[in-house]
Design a binder for these strands. Structure first.
Length: 259
DNA sequence: CTTTAAGCTACTGTGAGTAC
DNA sequence: GTACTCACAGTAGCTTAAAG
């Protein structure tokens, strides 16, 4: 999918990319093979020559930062299949908006959930997240990412150099509007019973209960972490749902089947 | 309540194609 | 060559949406 992408060349948009595909330039290699025969404005030819060569080199060397910088944000989903170290990311807060308002960070690597807790191991996140090629969030653009950058200024460049797929606008393009819980319902994704029916405001309440201490403290924390884990794990389902549909909707040339 | 890009709606610029 | 149209890409400004 990434190797069929041409829209990151300056001056090339969706219509030109579509035209390239229809002329048989279905990926970077086949573009180079038939570059001379393609009917193209000189401006596009120059831009594509550089972009295609740079892209092949960047992918060979697994340099996600090249694609993170040159691909439009809304097209970052195209890079996911080529860069497999994906972190599904979700934070909880105490209701405030300051740099110290983050209470929980959940990071799911596709196999297990890593949890970071305020006043325990939260700072560890800033190091461990650097092992990932990119992140998947739900409305992380407007919420999780700005919070994390305020809390850990180092992450400004870490996030800039990695892909970020925000499922909220992506699913909206596929006709699913509404919040995470609403879309999960639409798609028939179930939550574990104890975390079912909880919302972001409950996460604030559970954090306060945990911090107050006493009899229900540990139970409140357990429930909060369970809620956070549900969010990140379900994001993987949503991404797996969205990718093939985005691919089909964008009119990508079909994969060459090799025996 | 706060935050931020995406989405939307113009509008501008570039270039290819066509007619004369 | 000149003058015109049309399509595509990019940008500016405003609105929208969802997170806890």
């Amino acid at each position: 999918m990434l190797t069929s992408t041409f829209v990151h060349a300056p001056g090339v948009g969706p219509a030109t990319e579509q035209m390239l595909w229809s002329q048989g330039a279905i990926d970077w290699k086949s573009y180079q093979d038939r570059a001379q025969e393609l009917r193209l404005p000189a401006r596009h030819r120059e831009a594509l020559e550089t972009t295609v060569a740079d892209s092949i080199a960047a992918l060979e060397e697994a340099r996600i930062d090249y694609f993170a910088h040159n691909l439009a944000k809304k097209e970052h989903w195209r890079a996911v299949s080529e860069f497999s170290k994906i972190g599904y990311l979700d934070i909880e807060t105490d209701g405030g908006f300051g740099p110290d308002s983050i209470t929980v960070i959940g990071l799911y690597d596709g196999f297990e959930t890593h949890t970071y807790l305020k006043d325990k191991n939260l700072a560890q996140f800033a190091f461990e997240c650097q092992d990932y090629d990119g992140f998947v969030t739900f409305f992380g653009t407007g919420f999780d990412i700005p919070f994390l950058k305020r809390r850990f200024p180092v992450l400004e460049s870490v996030f800039a150099d990695r892909f970020h797929v925000d499922l909220c606008p992506l699913l909206k393009r596929l006709g699913h509007r509404g919040g995470l819980k609403s879309i999960e319902k639409q798609l028939g994704i179930a939550r574990v019973e104890e975390a079912d029916g909880l919302s972001g405001t409950d996460a604030i309440r559970l954090w306060r209960e945990y911090r107050r201490g006493g009899r229900h403290s540990e139970e409140a924390l357990r429930l909060l972490l369970s809620y956070n884990q549900e969010d990140v794990v379900n994001m993987k389902f949503l991404l797996d749902y969205a990718l093939p549909r985005m691919r089909a909707d964008s009119g990508f040339p079909s994969e060459i089947v090799t025996a």
